[in-house]
């Protein structure tokens, strides 16, 4: 069953007069994994925050279903070292029971870190704790901003597997932000290539046959390839407007 959870229509956002999001529309359905890819400065995190309701767009509308419960995994949480706080206490801030916190740690296979000060965690452990907090409130929409940031390749694979499992077990919509143009999960249902505007979007392709690729990334990830019908200059502006039309007629090799 697919249910519309959240919808953006013609969103525009400027920062200090500079456009960061231009005319973006998208919808997030229950049970669907959407990946937002694009270069640095493409406005991915800004768009994610508009979806979360943290940033108000200058124009356009954000319509959320009344049933939507959002779980958010920020890029990074920086906690001052002077604040003494354990991992399990960090999870309890989400206002859930102690048992729920331990269950979430368990499902991320990090129960042994419950009493560790959160500032002492490694990159991979840190990301798992953030993911645990995101799922604590049993969300039906997960927004993950660069979930594998600061994690080594092996750990990235494990994290992607976990996210995939979560999407299934929680039956939730997932919006994942990644700056990596080549590496996205094969299980992604929908890929949006963003560079301030939506360059193109569609289903990712299964290209997992290359032995070298499998050797490095394993079977679970795929190269997403699409035909880019236009180029960008260094400022992200579209170079040849005539051959490019946004979104609708993008096609994949």
């Amino acid at each position: 069953m697919s249910k519309l959870l959240l919808k953006l229509e013609s969103i525009n956002k400027n920062f200090a007069g500079r456009p960061v999001i231009e005319n973006v529309s998208l919808s997030l359905q229950q049970g669907e994994i959407t990946t937002l890819i694009g270069p640095n400065g493409a406005g991915k995190s800004t768009l994610a925050k508009i979806i979360l309701g943290l940033i108000k767009p200058d124009s356009g509308s954000r319509v959320a279903s009344s049933a939507v419960r959002i779980g958010y995994m920020p890029q990074k949480v920086t906690i001052d070292p002077t604040l003494p706080i354990s991992t399990v206490r960090f999870l309890q801030l989400a206002n859930v029971s102690q048992q729920a916190c331990h269950d979430a740690l368990e499902s991320m296979s990090i129960s042994h870190l419950a009493t560790t000060p959160i500032q002492n965690l490694s990159g991979g452990e840190h990301q798992r704790v953030l993911l645990a907090r995101a799922i604590l409130r049993k969300p039906n929409l997960l927004v993950l901003d660069e979930p594998v940031q600061g994690v080594d390749v092996k750990g990235q694979n494990a994290l992607y597997k976990m996210i995939n499992g979560l999407a299934t077990s929680l039956n939730c919509a997932v919006l994942m932000v990644s700056h990596d143009l080549h590496l996205v999960m094969s299980a992604t249902d929908h890929v949006i290539c963003l560079n301030r505007h939506i360059c193109c979007q569609g289903h990712p392709e299964q290209i997992t046959q290359d032995p070298a690729f499998i050797d490095i990334f394993g079977q679970t990830t795929a190269v997403y390839s699409h035909h880019h019908d236009h180029d960008h200059n260094l400022h992200g502006e579209v170079l040849d407007e005539t051959i490019h039309s946004h979104g609708a007629d993008c096609h994949h090799d």
């Binding site: 925050k49 943290l54 906690i79 801030l93 206002n95």
Partner: peptide, 17 residues
């Protein structure tokens, strides 16, 4: 108290929750 700790740890996470 709880909310103060929450926004000290991460205001955006607190806002989403």
């Amino acid at each position: 108290w709880k909310q103060l700790i929450n926004i000290t740890v991460d205001p955006e996470l607190a806002a989403v929750e």
